[in-house]
Design a protein around this nucleic acid. Structure first.
Lengths: 192, 192
DNA sequence: GAAAGGAATTGATTTAGATCAAGAATTATT
DNA sequence: AATAATTCTTGATCTAAATCAATTCCTTTC
C-alpha cells in the first residue's frame, strides 16, 4: 500500500527502516472511485493526497462556467490545494478522481507531527515544493510561447501516462486549447 | 535600509525587537545600477535578493533568442532563481535591474543560520513560497483563458507600480503578448 | 544641444486557433 | 443487447493577436 510513497521519499532523501515505518503511520489510506470528489472548491483542504494508484485532476470553474484543469496526479504524485491546506483558507480548486484511486492522506496536524518526529522529511517537502515551482514556471513560459502542437508534444514527452489515460477534453483544458484543436493536432502528429 | 524588509516580515509573523535585530544581520546590503545583472543564467544563484528600492526583472532567453520575462520585483518583493538557490544547480534565469536598486542579499548559509536562530522565519518563508505558488497558478490560468486586454487590466489592478515603471516591451513579454498589441490595448483602455 | 539608437505608435496583412455545427465512435445505463 | 449519453472527429467560418513595415517620439551619449 505504501510502495509509491516510499519510492518517492527514497528518491530524494535517505531514511532508516525505522524512520520509514514512522512516516507510514502518519498517512491515512483511502480509496475513492472514479468521478468522486476529494475536495470541493469553497471547503478547506484538510488533506494533501499522495497517489498510490489511479489518476486525479484538480480544476477551477470560472465565472462563465468554464473548467480549467490545473494539475493531473497519477501514481507517485501529490495533489491538493496547497494554499488552502497550509493556510486554512477556502480552497479555490476542486479535486476529482478520473480513475478509481488509492490515496495516502496527510492531514496538517499529522504533517506537523511527522516533520517533528522525522525532521529529514522537511527536506523531502522542500524538494517537492521547489520542483513544483520550477514546473509552474515552465508551464507559464510554455503557455505563452509554445504553439498548441509544441505544448502537446512536451506533455507527451514529460508525462506520457497522462496523455494515455486522461480524456482529450481534460488534456485540452490542461494545455489551454480547445478539444477540437487537440483532436486535429493528434491527427497530424500520428501521420508523421 | 531595512524598512521594507521589516514591513514584509511583520506583515506575516510577529518578532520581538531583538529578533528583528538578529534577522537584519543575516542580510547583506547591496546597491546595483540600472542595466546591471544580479544573476546570469548558467551561474549558480548564490543569493536571493529582497528589494528595498528599485525595480528588477528575471527572464529567460529561448533557443530563438526570444526573451521571456518571468517576474518583476519592486520594493518589498523577493527575487532570485529559487530552484538554483535551493538546489545549487545552474540558474535558468537572468536577473537584471531595470532601475537603480538597493537590495538585501541572503546567502544560503545565512538563510540556514537565520532559520536556526529565529525559527519563526520558517513561517515567513513558507508563506512567501505559498503565495508564490498561488500567484503562479493564477498566472497559468490567466495566460490560458484571458484575452490580452484582460491580462493587461489584471496586471494594472494587481501591480500598478509595475505598469507605471516597466517598459512596455517588458510588460508585453511578461504578459505573453507583442509590444504592438500592448500599445493598441493601452490606447483603447485610455479612451474609455 | 545635435545626432544616434531605442521605444512606442499606427497601419496593412496574415495566421493559429476558436467557434459553430453536424456526424461518427466510444462508453454507460437499463 | 439496445438505447442513451458522452466523447471524439471533421469541416466551414471567424477572429484575436502576430507579423511585417514605416513613422514618430523619447532617451542617451558625445
Amino acid at each position: 500500500m505504501h510502495e509509491q510513497l516510499i519510492k518517492s521519499i527514497q528518491d530524494k532523501i535517505t531514511l532508516s527502516p525505522e524512520e520509514i515505518e514512522k512516516v507510514k503511520h502518519f498517512y491515512i489510506p483511502k480509496k475513492i472511485r472514479k468521478r468522486q470528489y476529494l475536495l470541493n472548491a469553497g471547503d478547506v483542504c484538510q488533506y494533501i493526497a499522495f497517489v498510490e494508484k489511479g489518476l486525479l485532476r484538480s480544476f477551477t470553474v470560472d465565472n462563465d462556467g468554464g473548467e480549467h484543469v490545473i494539475q493531473f496526479a497519477l501514481e507517485g504524485w501529490l495533489i491538493g490545494d496547497m494554499s488552502s491546506f497550509l493556510s486554512g483558507d477556502e480552497a479555490t480548486y476542486n479535486i476529482e478522481a478520473l480513475e478509481d484511486a488509492e490515496l495516502l492522506l496527510l492531514s496538517k496536524p499529522s504533517m506537523e507531527d511527522m516533520l517533528h518526529t522525522v525532521p529529514k522529511m522537511e527536506t523531502y517537502f522542500r524538494i517537492l515544493m521547489q520542483n513544483h515551482i520550477v514546473a509552474l514556471n515552465r508551464r507559464v513560459i510554455s503557455s505563452m510561447s509554445d504553439t498548441a502542437e509544441q505544448k502537446y508534444l512536451k506533455l507527451m514527452n514529460n508525462c506520457p501516462g497522462i496523455v494515455n489515460r486522461a480524456s482529450q477534453q481534460n488534456i485540452a483544458s490542461f494545455l489551454g486549447i480547445t478539444p477540437e484543436t487537440l483532436s486535429r493536432i493528434r491527427k497530424q502528429v500520428a501521420q508523421k
